[in-house]
Computed example of a mutant assay.
Amino acid sequence: MKIDLSGKTALVTGSTSGIGHAIAKGLASAGAAVVINGRTQSKVDAAVAAITKAAPGTKVRGIAADVSTAAGCQTLVETLPDVDVLINNVGIFEPKGFFDIPDEDWVRLFDVNVMSGIRLSRAYMQGMLKRNWGRIVFIASESALLIPKEMIHYGVTKTAQLSVSRGLAELTRGTAVTVNSVMPGPTMTDGVETFVAELGRQNGQSPAEAASLFIKQHRAGSIIQRFASVEEIANMVVYVSSKEASATNGAALRVEGGLIPTIA
C-alpha cells in the first residue's frame, strides 16, 4: 500500500517537537503540503527547517499561533482558511494530586487539550463537508481510558477528546469526511528521553536500562514492554489521514502497546 496525500493540505497543531513533529514529517513524506504550528515563530521556523532537511522536496511551512486561545485559533484560521487534514495534536500534561489541582489548572488543560480541537474543527470541518473529503484526527492517549490517579485532569481531557471525535464523526454520515482519535501509550518523545536519561544517571543505569525498568514498574500492563517511538505513532496517524482509511470513522485507534487490557 502506497499512501499518497499529494494535493492535500494538512495542519498539525503543536508540531514543533515530539509526536506532532513526527506526524508532520510523515504527512509531508506522503506528499501533503504540511503546515507546522507552535506558539513561537522561532520554534516553528526550526521545525520547518528540520523537516525540510530530513525530507528534501517536501512542502512544509509554518504558522505561529497559540491555539489554546480563541484569538490564537482565529489567527491560524485567518492565515490558513482551508485544510484537508486537521490533526488536533497539541496537548499538555502535569502530574499533580487531585486535591492540589486548582480550577485554573483544570481550565488551562481543557483549553489546550480540548477547546483547541473544538475550535479548529468547527472552523475547518464545514469546508471539508462541502468539498466532500477531509480527515480530522484527535491525538488522545491511553489515559482517556486508564485515568491516571496522579493527573486526573489530564485523563479527563483525553476522555473528552474521544467524545468530541465520536460526536463529530456522526456529523459526517454519508460523506467522504472522517473523524477519528488515536490513542498513543508511553512514547519516547524528546522530553521523555531527557527524563529517562536523568533517571538512569541517578540510578547508575544506561538510558535503555532506565527506560526498560520504568515500563516494568509503572506500565507493567504493556504487552510490548517498551516505549513506542514517535514514528510508530505517526504511522497510524498518516494512515488514518489517507484515502486508504476511508472506512475508518468514529473510531478510537489504539497505539498503546497493549496497555489497555480489553479486546474492544
Rank of each mutant, 00 (worst) to 15 (best):
K8I: 05
T9M: 04
A10C: 06
A10W: 05
L11N: 02
T13K: 03
T13Q: 01
G14Y: 04
I19W: 03
I19V: 14
I19Y: 02
H21G: 00
A22D: 02
A24P: 05
A24L: 04
A32R: 05
A33L: 04
A33M: 06
V34W: 08
Q41A: 12
A46P: 09
V48E: 02
V48W: 11
V48C: 08
A49G: 05
A50G: 04
A50M: 04
I51Y: 11
A54Q: 10
A55K: 12
P56V: 12
I63Y: 12
T69P: 08
A71N: 11
Q74E: 15
T75S: 13
T75E: 05
E78Q: 14
E78L: 02
P81S: 05
L86Y: 14
N88S: 11
N89A: 06
I92P: 09
D100H: 10
E104D: 12
R108I: 11
L109W: 02
M115A: 09
S116E: 00
I118D: 00
S121F: 06
A123R: 03
L129K: 13
W133S: 00
G134K: 04
I136M: 01
A140K: 04
E142C: 00
S143F: 09
A144L: 04
L146H: 10
K149Q: 10
V156A: 12
K158S: 02
V164L: 08
S165H: 01
L171I: 09
T175S: 15
A176M: 09
T178V: 08
S181A: 14
S181L: 02
V182M: 02
M183P: 01
M183C: 12
G185M: 01
T187E: 00
T189R: 01
D190T: 15
G191C: 04
V192F: 04
V192Y: 03
V192T: 14
V196F: 11
L199W: 12
G200W: 04
Q202H: 13
N203S: 11
N203W: 06
S206Y: 09
A210S: 11
L213N: 11
H218G: 00
A220E: 13
G221I: 04
S222T: 12
F227D: 02
I233Y: 07
A234P: 05
A234W: 07
N235D: 12
V240E: 00
S241K: 01
S242D: 07
S242W: 09
A245C: 05
N249Y: 06
N249Q: 03
G258N: 10
L259S: 10
I260S: 05
T262Y: 14
I263R: 13
